[in-house]
Design a binder for these strands. Structure first.
Lengths: 109, 109
DNA sequence: TTGACATGATACCATTTGGTACTGCATATA
DNA sequence: TATATGCAGTACCAAATGGTATCATGTCAA
């Protein structure tokens, strides 16, 4: 049996607003831990923990250069997530979904 | 200031495999709490908690019919999530992303 | 009315999570 | 060499999370 796609670590990594913010920043350029920390209002150790979670989710890469650790976005790691979500796009605008919404709103108003 | 889009509750709701599984099941049809529980290997109270999280994330609707509570998928609630993710699709296949991947793999191998 | 059924609500517990503080190591640099 | 820098690793703490057990409430059916 092939290895299960790492959906869970990726979803878990995305569940924290600090980590999503870090991903946004890394989309602009590679950054050191100290640089990321400067924007995050928490200690470097805390930021490091978030980076490890992002790495476990395969959403970033980390490389060492001298005494610095440089983090880069790995946008491809988001693909399993968007693939999982794409299944539901079929329900966005079809008639069944609309009907369900109407029925539900009727009981909730 | 307009209400911030409810990104956080939705991402949080998606971060649990049990909740993602429930969403899949609800995409097929409306279900009672007891029906969902039958698939989940945990107590009804635990499933109910997960359903509340999904409702807070605007990913399901719940309506009451007699003594039953029926849950339905709200696929539209996933839209803010996919919108957030779509920002990163631009980084999937472009040259910068590829270069970053090559550089990173080089140091990790 | 009586009882069974589906659920809501609460209290409680163990584990995980998000954070700080501290120590220590490797690396630039004067 | 001596010193400051950037980071890793660990211990520790408070709060959130995921689960159970228990009891109360409303509803269907005989």
């Amino acid at each position: 049996m092939p290895a299960a796609r790492p959906l869970q670590p990726a979803f878990k990594a995305l569940a924290d607003p600090t980590r999503r913010d870090i991903l946004r920043r890394l989309s602009a350029r590679e950054m050191t831990i100290a640089e990321i920390t400067a924007h995050c209002d928490m200690t470097r150790a805390a930021v490091k923990k978030h980076l490890v979670v992002l790495k476990d989710g395969n959403l970033i890469h980390m490389r060492h250069e001298g005494r610095e650790t440089l983090s880069t976005l790995n946008a491809q790691g988001l693909k399993p997530v968007t693939d999982w979500l794409s299944y539901f796009e079929a329900f966005w605008d079809d008639k069944l979904s609309t009907l369900q919404t109407l029925l539900t709103d009727e009981t909730e108003t």
